[in-house]
Amino acid sequence: MKPILHIDKVSVHYGKLHAVQHVSLSVMPGERVCLIGANGAGKTSLLNAIAGLLPASGHIESNGHTISHQPAHQIASRGIALVPEGRGIFKQLSVLENLQLGAWLRKDVVSVQHDINRIFDTFPRLAERRAQRAGQLSGGEQQLLAIQRALLAQPRLLLLDEPSMGLAPIMTNVIYQSLEQQQHPDLAILLVEQNASLALRFGQRGYVMETGRITLTGSSQNLLNNPQVQAAYLGHAD
């Protein structure tokens, strides 16, 4: 089986600042992988580079196809969807328009409508506000909308950037539940989180990123038990 995402020695520069340095990682179809690390470790830069929103050096491929140096919309058409940091919803557009834009690349109009109706059935708060501008939703609802919008593209890989950022714990639970309940068994997820315990409980494998480099990798269980990870990211005392 070919990995849905395989990146080899990818680097991202902002001028002289090296945000990501020679990072390699891979994600298999249907797998949930998390990427943890402190603020400024380069996690967001890496996700944006994968999605084609940032220029990067190195090699990135998906399902055997090279996707590095391709424009973002072509990467999206390869089945890679990004829920960007800060959600990236279209705030002045309505909730419904946001969802429709998520299905931009799909040609099957009827089943798109069907999928949108299912989202409205599952999340009544979104249904109530379908005609209102998305900026009026609460932070958690915006995050829900952003994730559902990305899922409407029927991706094979979902790149999630800090879905719990700025949310109350109860809302974070709702978000993660919605991810657990999504109905695409083949969907792979690459999750970036600062909240390491949350991320490691969600993912099967994890990578730890520090100042632009991958410093540790392993199964979630191993990482949760790793004293270094515990000290640095899980808030356990030595």
Binding site: A72, H73, I89, F90, L93, E97, L101, W104
Partner: peptide, 22 residues
């Protein structure tokens, strides 16, 4: 028109949704 609106609102999110910005 919807693609234009998306670009106006958030260019990066529009591109990530598969809209060919150029």
């Amino acid at each position: 028109g919807r693609a234009w609106a998306a670009i106006r609102e958030d260019e990066l999110a529009a591109a990530a949704s598969g809209i060919a910005l150029r």
